[in-house]
């Protein structure tokens, strides 16, 4: 997976003129996006530079403890982000942390045990980042769907409660629908892999000089792990979150 592709800083500076094109369009079309664009570009440069140095440092350490710490940091950030998406979900942060954490842990565990990847920072961190962010997006979608379903299907849930059903059978359809909503983008993108676009990771590997066949192998691996993490995280997030829509008397809040 390692190759010596380099990009000279001067070429990068020349390439930055591409930003000017975007700024020009924004100004010309009165889109009022100049400020946003500049802030975006500066943030991208600063954040990525910091991450670059940080990763360089951690990769050099080759210390499993730091690698784990970084994974936890990524999971925390992702959980925070997902819980923001699910405003109205009780204990959103904690639920997200458990869902993403367990989803990522199981997937990485299988990958490492099977020998597909090594528990070394240069492999674990980019792969961990990919699955954690994928899980974050998935459970964000789950939350949105749970919130809208519990609002729109209130009467159905209350009808079932009134018949003497516990909260799980009263909400099972809503839970299933939300899990599906979380997983569908991953399944859909799987179907179009290679036809609509070359996935980012594969593109990166090819750019860095890996043969397309090798890159494809890694991409297939990535696809599998995205699928497993998304399903674990969506499942856990929905099953943990639905309870928050009821109180101790099993009444819909």
């Amino acid at each position: 997976m390692n190759s010596g592709a380099t990009l000279s800083t001067s070429s990068l500076i020349i390439a930055s003129s591409l930003v000017l094109i975007s700024l020009f369009f924004s100004y010309y079309q009165k889109l009022n996006l100049e400020k946003e664009t500049i802030i975006g570009v500066i943030r991208a440069i600063v954040q990525l530079t910091i991450v670059g140095y940080l990763l360089n440092f951690i990769f050099g350490l080759k210390n499993p403890f730091f690698t784990t710490l970084l994974l936890l940091f990524m999971t925390t950030n992702a959980s925070f982000n997902a819980s923001k998406r699910g405003k109205g979900i009780k204990n959103g942060f904690l639920i997200s942390f458990i869902a993403i954490g367990i989803g990522a842990f199981i997937t990485l565990f299988i990958l490492v045990v099977s020998g597909a990847i090594k528990y070394e920072p240069y492999q674990i961190i980019p792969i961990g980042g990919m699955i954690i962010s994928n899980a974050m997006v998935a459970i964000g979608l789950c939350y949105k769907q749970l919130l809208s379903n519990f609002k729109n299907k209130r009467e159905e849930v209350e009808t079932k409660l009134a018949l003497g059903a516990d909260i799980l059978p009263s909400s099972i359809e809503i839970i299933r629908d939300a899990i599906k909503t979380g997983m569908l983008p991953t399944i859909d993108s799987m179907k179009t892999l290679g036809i609509v676009a070359l996935p980012g990771m594969m593109t990166g590997l090819i750019l860095a000089g890996t043969s397309p066949i090798e890159a494809v192998k890694f991409q297939i691996l990535v696809t599998f792990m995205m699928l497993s993490t998304t399903s674990i995280a969506s499942f856990l997030a929905c099953y943990l979150a639905y309870k928050g829509f009821f109180n101790g008397r099993k009444q819909l809040i």
Binding site: E155, E158, T159, L161, A162, L163, G164, A165, D166, R249, K250, Q251
Partner: peptide, 14 residues
């Protein structure tokens, strides 16, 4: 509450 609702059954307006 689950057992109670089985004894006190409620049929909704809609």
């Amino acid at each position: 509450p689950i057992e109670l609702r089985k004894e006190i059954a409620y049929c909704f307006q809609m």
